[in-house]
């Protein structure tokens, strides 16, 4: 074969870096370093699993929601999370892994999900607190991911962020209604829920920057744009002000405004608890995976039937 034209040789690694440096997006068919692909699969799958496992603590209250209005909102919210899981699994699939493979890895404990979902939901106030603190922390983290360098991930995040901000507001609204509702029992429920969820919410941003193994490379690849500690600080500064509107006390005696830094100082996070939950020893780790894998196994005959039916249809046509 003769070639009539020759193109100048471009090193794909240089092109990859040039795209990132120019703030443009890497797309599925572009060349990318193996480590970039692996990091993205790990991160996007973890994010997708978090959405899906995160359905459980809230689905726990759908049947017991106090009003039909709240029930409808909660159903819609948990469904949104299933939808977020779908966008994210689809984004990860563009990198060469299937959804079924990711599910199997999750069930086998080889893929992680956000540790926050390993805590139980013990009262209706937990639905408000998850929206306010957990979704609030998630948004703080996710806003930057809209600018992530991988196109399918960044586009999925744009849509997810819009829905998350609605989730956060509905959570705040649940708590505000309970705090203003005039009952001591309701205010106690809210304070108790905030006491239980505050520290785990701060842990959602991950280890301190000095301990974070993935941060540096992820920042260079522009998958991650802001460090764990900076995001955590941003979340705390925003949330302290909101807690004043609600009239709840955040359970940290060291929390105070630092004029010099222009930020709130806060107490030491219990990293032993963080690592224990990450390693599978949180209050609900076992149940979350048992429920998830159990539903998957229980549904196997349904998925097999759907496949068998469509195979028969193909043969007929």
């Amino acid at each position: 074969m003769t070639t009539t034209q020759t193109r100048p040789e471009v090193d794909p690694a240089d092109l990859f870096q040039a795209i990132i440096d120019a703030e443009q997006k890497i797309e599925p068919h572009d060349w990318m370093p193996d480590a970039y692909r692996k990091t993205l699969i790990r991160q996007i799958a973890q994010h997708a699993h978090s959405e899906v496992i995160g359905m459980q603590p809230e689905a726990n209250w759908i049947s017991r929601a106090p009003t039909l209005h709240r029930k409808a909102i909660l159903m819609a919210k948990v469904q949104d999370e299933a939808g977020h899981g779908l966008y994210l699994y689809a984004a990860a699939e563009t990198l060469g892994i299937t959804r079924d493979e990711m599910m199997e890895l999750l069930h086998a404990g080889k893929h992680k999900y956000s540790s926050i979902f390993n805590y139980p939901t013990l009262s209706w106030a937990d639905m408000g607190t998850i929206g306010w603190l957990v979704d609030g922390a998630a948004i703080t983290n996710q806003v930057m991911l809209q600018r992530a360098s991988y196109g399918p991930y960044s586009r999925a995040m744009v849509r997810i962020c819009k829905e998350e901000s609605f989730h956060q507001r509905q959570g705040f609204d649940i708590l505000l209604t309970m705090m203003m509702g005039g009952s001591e029992a309701q205010r106690e429920m809210v304070q108790d829920a905030v006491n239980r969820w505050w520290w785990p919410s701060l842990m959602m941003f991950g280890p301190n920057d000095s301990e974070s193994t993935h941060t540096e490379q992820s920042m260079a690849w522009k998958i991650k744009r802001v460090s764990n500690d900076d995001l955590r600080q941003q979340f705390i500064d925003m949330t302290v002000e909101q807690s004043k509107v609600l009239g709840v006390t955040l359970p940290d005696p060291d929390l105070r405004w630092n004029e010099e830094r222009g930020h709130y100082d806060f107490g030491e996070i219990d990293w032993d608890e963080f690592w224990a939950v990450v390693k599978g020893n949180g209050p609900m780790n076992r149940e979350r995976i048992e429920n998830k894998a159990g539903a998957w196994d229980d549904g196997a005959w349904v998925r097999e039937a759907a496949l068998a039916h469509s195979a028969k249809k193909r043969r007929v046509s």
């Binding site: 899906v52 359905m55 759908i62 029930k71 409808a72 159903m75 469904q79 539903a295 549904g299």
Partner: peptide
């Protein structure tokens, strides 16, 4: 129907049953 949410055979079914449940609730 809402009891299926988070327990369905796959995510698409989860979303479908939840949506249908929401229609009935409305």
């Amino acid at each position: 129907l809402s009891d299926w949410i988070s327990k369905a055979p796959d995510l698409e079914v989860d979303i479908a049953l939840g949506n249908i449940g929401l229609d009935h609730l409305g």
